[in-house]
Simulated scan of single mutants.
Amino acid sequence: MNTLLSPLPTWTFPFCPQPPDWFRDWDSIQNDFDWIQNLRGCQQDPIYHAEGDVLIHTRMVCEALISSPNWRQLPEKERSILFAAALLHDVAKPAFTKIEADGRISSKGHARQGARMVRQILSQFEPPVQFEIRETVVAIVKFGSLPIWLIDKPNPQQSVIKVSQVVRCDFLALLAEADVRGRQCSDRQELLDKIELFREFCQENNCLDSPRQFPSAHSRFIYFRKENGNPDYEAFDDTRCEVILMSGLPASGKDYWIQKNLPHLPVISLDALRKEMNVPPDETPGNVVTAAKKRAREYMNEGRSFVWNATNTTKQMRQQLINFFAAYQARVRIVYLEVPLEEILQRNRSRTVTVPEAVICKLAARLDIPDITEAHQVEWVVSDRA
């Protein structure tokens, strides 16, 4: 569920080539976007990237994508999404590139951080980029190398099925193919063969151009919590209550949303507990979490539904809580709230008790938006008001 409080016309990436001539306006792209210029001079390992620096590679990737018949036959919105992903797929390389002791050049971790940088970059566009489009570009950048590395995964089937829940796998294959064709390397054909194998594997698992379907939401939840589960297994739903796990930056409107939508449920609020225990708003010591979990345990033992209200901005934070709730046979529903960062900071300044702005910006930079693989149900309540 995605609730947009202010609908916008469909956004397309500036300068995305259009038929019939598919003109590439590289001068405008390089003049308009600082992050493109930052790629200039960033070295790459010549064994895998003999073509030159990251800027040269990025342009070659875009050229390869634009030349692809599979890309050209897509609707305009989808062409735009993939073009944006191609331009941005290595945006974090300058920050993550280093020369190893043996002289080789590496950029480990650039895809995951690159996805976060993409979210920040697209959040600053005018007109605003729709949440769904932005997060699709983010996911393509984050998982773009999966087609090449699939066979090295401990559980390839679960890897493709999991990714299919957040992004189309055929999009990943298109970008991966452009990435390979946009470089000079000795193993190009081997890499292209891996991408084709990825396509075939996704097709076999019914998740190439749509999410893999499950017998039920609970079956999906159980599947992603097991290492070697069967995606066709219909799990018995033994849940006894529902926990609504709130997620969102400070001042994103979680308290208001709860009051408006769930006034009948008890709320466990870390902010309220901090206030009770005289703890600063930017700190969460162990005794606060212990007290919150004690109350949650009492509710779950009674089979009583409740709301857990905290920022929960990273997947690791949420996973620890979801494991705790699931152990008590709770059904988990995540509600994520988002408003522009500028509005968040403005709201925070008007509060009686404020959170340091540096803390909010740090949380925003490390934000992992919840996806459907984490819980039984996920809702994204997004406002584009600035």
Rank of each mutant, 00 (worst) to 15 (best):
V307N: 00
R333F: 10
A310N: 13
E302K: 10
R331T: 06
T352M: 14
Y328C: 13
D255P: 10
K275E: 13
A272I: 08
I334K: 02
C241Y: 08
N348S: 11
E298Q: 11
S252V: 11
Q319F: 07
R333M: 14
G253W: 08
A330Q: 04
R333K: 15
L270N: 01
A272P: 05
P263V: 05
D238H: 14
V335E: 03
G303Y: 05
L273W: 01
L345Q: 13
P266K: 10
A326M: 07
T311A: 09
G253E: 08
L245H: 04
P281S: 06
E276P: 04
R297F: 06
E302G: 09
L337S: 03
E338H: 15
S252N: 11
A291W: 06
A310H: 07
M300F: 03
P285I: 05
P250G: 11
E298C: 14
G303F: 02
R274W: 03
V243F: 04
D282N: 14
Q329M: 15
D271F: 02
M300G: 02
P263Q: 09
S247G: 12
L249E: 08
M300T: 02
I268L: 05
F325V: 02
V267T: 07
A296Y: 01
T284D: 08
R297I: 09
P340M: 07
V307Q: 00
T352V: 14
R274N: 04
